[in-house]
């Protein structure tokens, strides 16, 4: 499955622990790690306060549109976006080229603190992504693409639509 993003338990737990620490260190309300295609990879914080699926999709759309704008003016990308609200604010940054880190914070934190903590956490997450990429490369080489759907049948798929 070249090109598909595959995440295993070990890396998932590592990413979640980085997010939990970042959330505590930056005093943020919630932190989301999102694939650039709009799918949530991991999250930490007050998750029940937010529609996390919609957040992931709109954040990816926002980043994609801003990337388009950057290219129009000759920039490679805008690596950090900040949206300021009356109570809550959003800090968006790119991690390891393919993921987006979304930090939602209020006045218990500050933009400076979030920026500082995001920088450190991003480095840690990039290391995890590198591990994921090398695992995927090994799997590709050895032919162990590990598709959970290797044995899927037409009946399995039809059952999804039966309700």
């Amino acid at each position: 499955m070249a090109g598909d993003l595959v995440i295993y338990q070990e890396e998932y737990e590592l990413l979640e622990s980085v997010l939990r620490r970042l959330r505590a260190d930056s005093n943020a309300r919630a932190i989301f790690l999102i694939d650039k295609n709009g799918q949530q990879i991991a999250a930490a914080g007050e998750l029940d306060q937010f529609d996390t699926t919609s957040l992931a999709s709109l954040t990816a759309g926002n980043v994609a549109a801003t990337d388009g704008l950057a290219k129009l003016i000759g920039e490679r990308e805008f690596s950090v976006l900040f949206h300021e609200g009356q109570q809550d604010h959003i800090h968006i940054s790119i991690v390891g080229k393919r993921a987006i880190l979304l930090v939602i914070f209020d006045d218990r934190s500050s933009l400076g603190l979030v920026r500082l903590r995001v920088k450190r956490a991003s480095g840690e997450m990039e290391t995890v992504f590198e591990t994921m990429a090398s695992k995927a490369a090994v799997a590709e080489e050895t032919g162990e693409t590990a598709s959970p759907f290797a044995e899927i049948t037409d009946e399995d798929i039809d059952a999804l639509f039966s309700e």
Binding site: M1, D4, V6, I7, Y12
Partner: peptide
């Protein structure tokens, strides 16, 4: 490009 999460068993 699908996203397969083995930790949560989601695709």
């Amino acid at each position: 490009m699908a996203f397969i999460n083995y930790a949560n068993r989601e695709i």
